[in-house]
Write a protein that binds this DNA or RNA. Structure first.
Lengths: 252, 252
DNA sequence: CCTAAAAAGTTGCGTTTGAAATTTAAATAT
DNA sequence: ATATTTAAATTTCAAACGCAACTTTTTAGG
């Protein structure tokens, strides 16, 4: 990794931990000039990850979603790029909420043409609305304020109007017994509703999730076609998934 | 109007016109210290109307919606407060997109309890998501990026699941011949779809709209129950509306 | 009308900022 | 390997900043 990227990663880590870092401090602890730190922070702000203020920076808005974007940003970015390679110009696809999915949406928006994205996440709709190449269908439903997604019976009725080839989701955990798991009941149910309308479900997730199990059932293994993750996935998990006929795409 | 409010109004006007104003300039042309101007700008930023930067300020994000919020902010705020008086705690209502409607939603969110807002505007959903007292139903549909609203057949199917007492909308123009008019075909159609599901339609609009006519039909006069506007509404329009059985609520 | 309290505005000072010019380091081609 | 180009980091300085202490103006009650 390049020097600058490392510094950016370090800054984001510090920020995730301490919520606030100031320029003077960063400059000293990272051994570069204040001007350099300012440029770093400006770049990170341009990416929408942090907010610059006079003398310091904070994570973007204490917002749940933005914090999750900043956390392990570089890895998630790579996962998004890898997943994006599956997508053709002109395709219509579904994306669920989640930080990796948001980055995927952004990657699609900046590299593909005439793609239609169907999503239950108004965060994602907002996140990529500046890119004219992409058409967005926003599903309706009960609005979950923290996650900025819609869920519930209306969302199911909305999504039933569509049928697509690929559906991209995140996950909060995995085990052989449970399959993929989530942490929110309503959101997980909505994911299952959406999955019914897609030929292939692609899970995009950091490998760390393979060492965790979520609170509620999300999707059984046999409904997933492909997993995009990083190379730290436990060998055991990878073998098991492959054995179940799932393509495991590793990055980095 | 108080001195400070007048300065704020002036700043917003300048900003709407010039897109960018700097502290030094404002300080001179308004005859107050730079510190005072900075405090003004900080306040306006806290309201989400502008964005502060080093040495100057701009309108919030060149974003269509935010610009419209800043334009005639004080009047719109009053209209919102007046419209909010019609609403009871615990009520379920529908709100369409539009700057006055966004301010109404905020007013509801800060003064009412247990209100459910059904809307096709993800801007509004996002705008008030920090307030826990309010439940939001976000309708689905084709996403219009600039306006941050959903429209189209899916929106109609979504809204058909509800029936409410009051539906609040804005307008882009009015005349005796045309009734209320809009500037966007799809959005206007969606408003009509939503209006079918409400007993009373309330139009919230600056009086200046009574001197304009929009591009497309929005709603005929006989489908509107009430108009909330400011006291600059032409007497002729007011009389006509009253004669048609519409309650005209004037503020200020 | 007057007085007390709150709000609005100013002054002064040490710190942080953006911008431009310059040096250093890294990538790419020869 | 070495030259060429490009990107990254530093230095410098006037302008802008936040903060806190102070003064003026509004507001509201006796």
């Amino acid at each position: 990794m390049k020097k600058m990227e490392m510094r950016h990663t370090k800054i984001l880590e510090l920020l995730t931990e301490k919520k606030k870092v100031d320029v003077t401090e960063l400059s000293q602890s990272l051994g570069v000039s204040q001007v350099t730190i300012r440029k770093d922070l400006d770049l990170l702000e341009k990416k929408g990850l942090i907010i610059r203020e006079h003398g310091f920076a904070t994570l973007n808005g204490e917002d749940d979603m933005n914090n999750r974007l900043a956390y392990h940003y570089e890895v998630k970015q790579k996962l998004a790029k890898a997943a994006c390679a599956f997508i053709e110009d002109g395709e219509t696809l579904m994306i669920e909420s989640g930080s990796c999915c948001a980055l995927l949406a952004q990657e699609i928006a900046t590299t593909k043409k005439d793609v239609t994205i169907i999503t239950n996440s108004s965060f994602i709709a907002d996140y990529i609305r500046q890119f004219p190449q992409i058409k967005i269908i926003l599903l309706g439903g009960e609005y979950q304020k923290e996650a900025q997604v819609v869920v519930g019976p209306m969302t199911r009725r909305c999504v039933e109007a569509f049928f697509v080839d690929k559906f991209f989701i995140g996950t909060d955990g995995f085990s052989k017994n449970t399959g993929f798991t989530g942490n929110d009941y309503m959101r997980s149910e909505t994911v299952r509703d959406m999955a019914k309308q897609a030929t292939h479900v692609v899970v995009i997730t950091e490998s760390s999730k393979f060492q965790q199990v979520g609170l509620v059932n999300l999707l059984p293994t046999n409904q997933v076609s492909c997993v995009v993750t990083d190379d730290q996935i436990p060998a055991e998990s990878e073998e098991y998934l492959t054995l179940q006929g799932i393509t495991v795409q590793k990055v980095k």
